[in-house]
Design a protein around this nucleic acid. Sequence first.
DNA 1: CGCTGGATTGACTCGGATCAAGTCGAGTGG
DNA 2: CCACTCGACTTGATCCGAGTCAATCCAGCG
Lengths: 240, 240
Amino acid sequence: MTNRFVEKLREYTALDEEDVAGLLALTARPRLVKARHDLIREGDRPGPVFGMIEGWACRYKILPSGARQVLAFLMPGDACDLHIGLLAEMDHNIQTITPARVATIDRTDMDMLMARRPAVARAMYIAQLVDEGTMRAWITSMGRRTSIERVAHLMCELYLRSRNSMAGEAPLPLPLSQILLADSLGMTSVHINRVLKELRMAGAMTLHRGSLEVSDPAKLVRIAGFDDGYLHRRMRNGEA
Amino acid sequence: MTNRFVEKLREYTALDEEDVAGLLALTARPRLVKARHDLIREGDRPGPVFGMIEGWACRYKILPSGARQVLAFLMPGDACDLHIGLLAEMDHNIQTITPARVATIDRTDMDMLMARRPAVARAMYIAQLVDEGTMRAWITSMGRRTSIERVAHLMCELYLRSRNSMAGEAPLPLPLSQILLADSLGMTSVHINRVLKELRMAGAMTLHRGSLEVSDPAKLVRIAGFDDGYLHRRMRNGEA
DNA sequence: CGCTGGATTGACTCGGATCAAGTCGAGTGG
DNA sequence: CCACTCGACTTGATCCGAGTCAATCCAGCG
């Protein structure tokens, strides 16, 4: 009796029964949320800590021009902004991509648990450091990688974040439209489409509706120039 | 008897004498570091918490191709990665840009101070949240802003971070070469040069060697589409 | 006083955006 | 069960912002 949120924290650091019990108590009654629903909007006063139990979401900003920039993908197990309650207002939006089960954890409860259970605090901090590393990797991609490298790099990241290994057999469920990918990688969906075709032709990977098939992990990693260091987990049996 | 590091934390939250005394004790003996010196490198085991007392630094990554991406500018008062000691290794480098005075704070000492002085913890967390907001703004810039918007946006950010207001009179010391700007904005130095010329012609701002003169703050803000929300401070008497 | 690294400018090229048609697939309602 | 619709995906033709290459220029400095 556990959930993906707790499991993911356990991947970062050892948690004993009490730690797990505390976390489960806080995530026991997740909210069911429809797809494309804003969990919180820019300008809102920050509310509870979110924990994704099931389903995907993304952080994003809208520019004056109306353009959208996706800032991060939140997959099952991911947590949102630990200390953000210290701020007056959100500087970005968070929206579900698929129907989702979201734990909304009261900040005070979370603070108390972290004070009482140092291992939980440790796991939460590591999760946050990984998120920061991921943002830095995104900045690097947008600034200095070509479009095919960018796409390949993001696919490696998403694959590794959900599988912990590039050794891929089954396709990965990946509920991301090409429009969403475009808005996350700073490209147009037209160009994303062409790049995906190129990656498919090269025999590296295929993105079907809703799932990613990595036919040649080593090639994909090579194209991306992917180095998993920033995710701060060792690949368990990957080829990179 | 204080320093920029402590002053900046005080801008985030009220600190009493004990808080300040504790911080001053930890930052009393800053290291003097030459320009262009790596404080820590990718792959290194994280060391102490850094606090910039004087001078500038930047975080950066080097890609397999040799290209550099600057991830953040650290100006006097900025702190580095609070909990990063939890990780096995750094995923990026930090290098001084100018000669600098850098406080190296032992992680245990910092943890103890934060446990003893909640206001200090609060200030450090806010600083970290601002850094994260800044990273998100950079992702947004690289993904969805044109080159002139990008440059103008970064200038607004740097101006506001050091002045807390766009109401500009005196030029701002800004020891950034066009090459460094290029590597931070994902452009070439040739193109940065042309964009700077354009901004100068438009009468918005001029970047001299080592200093930034914002002749028309309102215009610069307008060009950038700048919204200071992500810096999580209210402009005190700015025009934006 | 010459060296060196940044800044500047021009000529040319190219990656990715834009514009414009389609095509395909999952719902939806008759 | 099929026609209709709507959003996402594909593909081609064209355009343009920014990169590349290549000279200079200029300031600080040994």
